[in-house]
Design a binder for these strands. Sequence first.
DNA 1: ACGTTCCACTTGCATTTTGCAAGTATCTCT
DNA 2: AGAGATACTTGCAAAATGCAAGTGGAACGT
Lengths: 93, 93
Amino acid sequence: MSDLAAALDIVGARWALLVVEQMLDEPKRYGDLQRDLGVPTNILATRLRELEVAGVLVRLPLRHNTRAYALTERGRALREAIIALGNWGAEEA
Amino acid sequence: MSDLAAALDIVGARWALLVVEQMLDEPKRYGDLQRDLGVPTNILATRLRELEVAGVLVRLPLRHNTRAYALTERGRALREAIIALGNWGAEEA
DNA sequence: ACGTTCCACTTGCATTTTGCAAGTATCTCT
DNA sequence: AGAGATACTTGCAAAATGCAAGTGGAACGT
């Protein structure tokens, strides 16, 4: 399996990279991600679980019964790839 | 829609980026892509059609009844993003 | 202490996408 | 005309995705 295939195995699923992008600047809560992305709630829950298992993000317990999702070092390492893809998407066809 | 979402709208489907990666160095034929990637043939046909419509690649008629698929300028512009993602995939967890 | 509210999910089911295997079309060469 | 090679298409099963409603637990007000 190529390096690219290995990467896509982790962040290639629908919504995965968009979720990571949201957290690049600061940790986000579940509701924030849902509102900002418009992602179906069951999919969001699934992605967060997968990305946590993959070591891309961690759950931070917050006060009340809320938690924040924050990128790990490995998650933050996606910044360059996300920016590169974003630049490409911004260019006109 | 964010720039990243726009990009994923085009190359976010399964196999799409892997197909583009294969053509970064040189044009490829249908059978080559199928063998090298192990992608289901109907999916490959669908992706090639989508990527052609999106202006990422073009069909080049070859002799016999074969054709080659080659990246356009827009397709080649994906190189940086693909390399960035590949690098990330190559790093250990 | 009890009900209400908020937040983070889960669950059930329809729709869409993906995958597998087999079949079709066209060209070339003999 | 027949055979082989290449590029697909087609039919159907499996898996992923999406939608809407429901669940569970902690905090807050009374």
